[in-house]
Design a protein around this nucleic acid. Structure first.
Lengths: 145, 145
DNA sequence: TGCCAAGCATTAGAACCCTAACTACTCTTC
DNA sequence: GAAGAGTAGTTAGGGTTCTAATGCTTGGCA
């Protein structure tokens, strides 16, 4: 009595691929003892040292409170340090510690391995198609908001 | 110093599409006052009344403890009922209540609306391509496990 | 000068999701 | 009949995610 069978729902295929991706990245990040969101934050921090938590949240596609908890966990483990900004007393500048950089590089090696394996499964044209089609998905769904 | 730019990572495009999908479905489920995972559980329960929580978890692609918490929330709100199985005393049969069915139908209307809008953005050939490419993604990533 | 909008950080509360571990029951096999 | 395998349910604990709300600082504007 269902109005639309699961197989015909494009969303279920997107979700399935994303689940597999998350699982693969989780195991890839395991040697570094960080989670996937933690790795994402560390990766952006390596590229933009001293960024604010709010800006980092935007880059990672999460909300500020979410990034707050991620950074809290990273800070408790000594992977990042947070120092007050010179002028904007309210802003905390976040940076990688040496341990944080090491963890990021270890996790990145695993993540890149996953990405390379994924990319290797497609021809350059297929890759381009896939990215384009996914982009249109995001566009349509965002417009639906 | 990053080994691979984000734009070249197929995974980031998959994640982006999935995020947009989740956001769209979340708003679509809002009139029924259920979350997306709750809607997924209700949808399968409508199709397979009396299913066990473990089997439902497998259908929804989550673990048994996760489904346990989802069902607990649904049960507290009176959307599902759970009765002991006749023979297998250990099994709890889960069924929709009338309120649960109403919520499912309301949420399903919104979810189908999202799926139709998504499908309308592609030609039949493109749709087929997208599903095939996503399937290959899941396959490759699962093999990586 | 003083007010106010904007941005940053944080807390609280709810929900989801996982792994790990434990308990209970059924069914098969010896 | 009894041991073991398999399945179901649950608890515990850590982590991520959201919305809503609060407090703080800064900079623009009257």
């Amino acid at each position: 009595m269902t109005s639309m069978p699961p197989e015909e729902r494009i969303g279920s295929h997107i979700k399935r691929a994303e689940q597999a991706l998350l699982a693969a990245k989780t195991t890839a990040c395991k040697p570094a003892a960080v989670t996937v969101p933690q790795y994402a934050a560390l990766l952006w921090l390596a590229e933009k040292p001293g960024i604010s938590a709010a800006a980092l949240a935007r880059l990672c596609g999460v909300t500020a409170p979410t990034m707050n908890t991620v950074l809290k966990n990273l800070h408790e483990r000594g992977l990042v340090e947070r120092t007050p900004h010179e002028w904007h007393r309210n802003v905390l500048e976040t940076r990688l510690t040496p341990e944080g950089r090491a963890a990021m590089e270890l996790a990145d090696a695993g993540a890149v391995r996953v990405e390379r394996a994924l990319a290797a499964a497609f021809s350059p044209e297929e890759r381009e198609q896939l990215v384009a089609l996914l982009g249109r998905c995001a566009e349509v769904l965002d417009a639906l908001k």
